[in-house]
C-alpha cells in the first residue's frame, strides 16, 4: 500500500511538471497582459519599468525557469491585477467552490442512488420508466439554461429561494461555510442542484445498469437460495458489487464539478474559484490562471489516488501496487 502511494506520488510530480509547461505555454500564447494591464496613456519609460518589474521582458523559457524556481518555494507568483500572491487569492475562494461541489455531489448520490436502484429493480414499472425518461433531461439540458430556469421559477416567480451570493456564513475550523446557517443553505440550494442535475442522471443510469447486471449473476440467485431477505440481497450483495464503477464516476465528477463550476458560479454570483478564473482570463492575469490550473491538476491527482484506495477497500481482488502496468 505505501509502496503504491509513493509510486503514485512520484508519477504525480511528473504529471505536474508536464502540466505546468503546457499551461505556461498555453497562457503565453493567449495574449500579452501588458496591453490590458498598462493604461494606454502611460509613457514608454513607465511601460518599460512595469514590464521589467513583472519579468515580462525575459524570454519565455527564462520566465518558466523563474516560475519553477519560485514554485519550488511554494510561490506561484503575484496576481498582476490584485498584486497579492495568486495562491492566496485562489485559496481564499476555494472553500466556497468546494462547498458547492460537495453539496452538489452529495445531492447527486442521495437522489441518484435510490432512484437508480429502483429503476434497476423494476425496469418495467411505470415509475422505473419515468425515472429513466427524466434522467435524459438531466443529461441533455445545458447547465446554464437549467440555472436560469431555476432562478426564474424559484427566485422570480415563486420568490422562495435567493438567486445569488452565499448568504450568511458560519465559521467551521476558521473557514466560512454556508451550509451551517439556514440562510446559507437557502442560497446553496439552487446552484448546488444545478450542478447536481447532470450527476444525478449519470448516477441513475450507472446504478440502474449495474443493478440489472448484478441481478442476473449467480451470486444473487445463490443469496436468494440461502433465504436472505431482499433488503440484504440488494443492500449488501448487489450494492457492494456495483459501487466500484459508481465510486469512480462520483470521484471524477467531483473533480470536474470543482474545475468547471465556472458557469454555475457566474450565473448565481457564487464567489468561488470559477468566477475568479473567468475574471483572471479577462485581464490575462497569468499567475492566477497558471496557479488555478495547477491546483486543479493537483486536485484531480489526489482524487484519483483516493479512488484507487477506495477500490482496494471495495473489491478484495484489487491489490494496490502488486502489479500495476
Amino acid at each position: 500500500m505505501s509502496v503504491f502511494i509513493i509510486r503514485r506520488l512520484l508519477q504525480s510530480v511528473l504529471v505536474l511538471v508536464v502540466m505546468s509547461m503546457l499551461v505556461f505555454a498555453g497562457v503565453y500564447a493567449v495574449g500579452n497582459p501588458i496591453d490590458i494591464l498598462i493604461s494606454p496613456d502611460a509613457t514608454q519609460a513607465d511601460r518599460d519599468a512595469t514590464i521589467r518589474a513583472m519579468g515580462l521582458d525575459r524570454p519565455m523559457w527564462l520566465q518558466y525557469a523563474y516560475f519553477v524556481k519560485n514554485a519550488l518555494a511554494a510561490d506561484l507568483g503575484k496576481s498582476f491585477a490584485f498584486n497579492v500572491p495568486a495562491i492566496e487569492l485562489i485559496l481564499e475562494r476555494m472553500p466556497a467552490t468546494l462547498e458547492l461541489a460537495s453539496c452538489a455531489m452529495l445531492m447527486a448520490v442521495v437522489i441518484g442512488l435510490p432512484l437508480g436502484l429502483y429503476a434497476g429493480l423494476k425496469p418495467k414499472s411505470f415509475a422505473g420508466k419515468t425515472i429513466m425518461t427524466l434522467s435524459i433531461f438531466g443529461f441533455s439540458l445545458p447547465t446554464f439554461w437549467i440555472g436560469l430556469m431555476l432562478i426564474m421559477i424559484f427566485a422570480v416567480f415563486l420568490g422562495v429561494l435567493p438567486s445569488n451570493g452565499r448568504g450568511a456564513t458560519a465559521l467551521l475550523l476558521g473557514i466560512p461555510v454556508s451550509f451551517l446557517t439556514w440562510d446559507g443553505l437557502r442560497h446553496l440550494a439552487l446552484p448546488a442542484f444545478t450542478l447536481a442535475l447532470l450527476n444525478i442522471a449519470l448516477i441513475i443510469r450507472l446504478v440502474r445498469s449495474g443493478t440489472q447486471e448484478a441481478l442476473l449473476m449467480d451470486y444473487v440467485k445463490f443469496a436468494r437460495a440461502k433465504g436472505l431477505s431482499d433488503a440484504r440481497i440488494i443492500g449488501v450483495h448487489v450494492l457492494k458489487n456495483i459501487m466500484i464503477p459508481i465510486v469512480t464516476v462520483i470521484a471524477l465528477q467531483f473533480g470536474s464539478v470543482i474545475a468547471f463550476a465556472v458557469v454555475t458560479e457566474t450565473i448565481f454570483a457564487w464567489p468561488g474559484m470559477g468566477k475568479l478564473l473567468i475574471d483572471s482570463i479577462n485581464v490575462l492575469d497569468r499567475p492566477v490562471i497558471v496557479a488555478y490550473l495547477l491546483i486543479i491538476v493537483t486536485l484531480f491527482i489526489f482524487i484519483n489516488l483516493l479512488v484507487d484506495i477506495a477500490y482496494s477497500l471495495l473489491d478484495p481482488r484489487v491489490r494496490l501496487g502488486e502489479s500495476d502496468s
Binding site: F222, A225, K226, D315
Partner: peptide, 30 residues
C-alpha cells in the same frame, strides 16, 4: 424455507459466491 429446509447448490462455483464479501459474512448471513 429456502436455505433452511430446502437448499440449493449451483453449477459454477466461480460465480455462486459473492466476490466482494468474505466467506464468514456469506456463511453467517445464511
Amino acid at each position: 424455507l429456502r436455505g433452511n429446509r430446502i437448499a440449493m447448490i449451483f453449477q459454477d462455483p466461480m460465480m455462486t459466491l459473492n466476490p466482494v464479501l468474505r466467506i464468514d459474512t456469506q456463511m453467517v448471513e445464511a
